[in-house]
Amino acid sequence: MNSELAIRARGLSKQFGNLRAVDRLDLDVPKAAIYGFLGPNGSGKSTTIRMLCGLLTPTEGSANVLGIEIPGKATLLKPRIGYMTQKFSLFGDMTVRENLQFIAEIYSYPQRERATRIDEVLEKYDLVEQRQQFAGTMSGGQKQRLALACAVLHKPELLLLDEPTSAVDPQSRRDFWANLFRLAEAGTTILVSTHYMDEAERCHRLAILDHGVKVADGSPQHLQANTGMHVVEVLADDPYHAQTSLIDVPAVASVTQLGVRLRVLIPEAVDDPLHLVNLNLRKHNVFAESRIVPASLEDVFVAVTMKPEQIAA
C-alpha cells in the first residue's frame, strides 16, 4: 500500500436488505488531507464512514485504513482513530471535564499527562468556561466543540467526522473548520461528510456520493473545471417565467433558481450556449441578462447527480 494514503478502499459495498447503501466504492484518501464526502441524506456517507471504522461489515470489497485491513482487525484501529457521530453522543449528565476525563481513561492516555492534555484541549476548543457545565445543557456549537475535543483528545492519526456541522450555526461552522485546518496542518487525516457546499469547497479533496455510488472524485477546483457543462447565469426580473421558458429546451440539462438569478447547465457539446439561452428567453418574451460563468461546486453537484436521460444533448 502506498504509504502516502491513509485510506484505500476497493469495491466497498454494503447491502441492507433490498437497499444497496454503498455500491462498489473506490477511495484513496491521502495522509494529512481533509477529504470530504458530499452527498444528500441517504447517499451512503454515514454507512461508508461506519464501514471504515469497523462498525459495519462490508458486504463486498475491502479497505485498508492506516495500514490495517478492515473489518478484520478493527480493534487495532480503534486507538488510532477519532470518530465523531452525527448525533451528539457524549454523556449529557456529566460535565465537560468529566467527559474528557472519561475519554482520556478509555483511550489509556498516559496518566501523568492527562490533566495537561485535558487543559490543553479545553483551551484549544474554547471550553474553559464550560468545563464544569453539564454537557447536556450546552448549546449546539458548544456540544460540537466538546465532541471534537473528545475525538482528538488521544491525538488520533485519522479523524472520521460524520456530518459534524449539521446542528450548528454558521459562525460555529466557520470556527469548526478553522480547527480542522489546524489539525490537518499538524498531520491529521480528516474524513468529513457534509451536505453543505461551502464546507465541501474547503476540502482538499472531495468525493460526491449519490445513491451509494461515487459520481465524482477530485479537488474542488478540478471538479469545477471538469463538469462537462457550460454554466449560464441568467439575471431576470421574473425568474420564474425565465425558468419555465428554459426548462423544456432539450439541450438544457438543468435550471436552478438562486434568488433572482438562474443557473443554467448546458452540456459542453453545445457550441454557443449563450445564444441558445438568449434565443429561448426572447422567444418567451422574458427580459433578462445572461452570461457564461465558471462552475460552482453546486453546479458540479447538480451535474454529476443528474439522471442520464436529463442530459439529452
Binding site: L55, L90, Y107
Partner: peptide, 14 residues
C-alpha cells in the same frame, strides 16, 4: 437510546 453506545464501541473498549 442516547447514542452513547455508538461512541463507546468506537473506542478501544472491549
Amino acid at each position: 437510546e442516547r447514542g452513547n453506545l455508538e461512541l463507546l464501541i468506537n473506542t478501544p473498549v472491549t
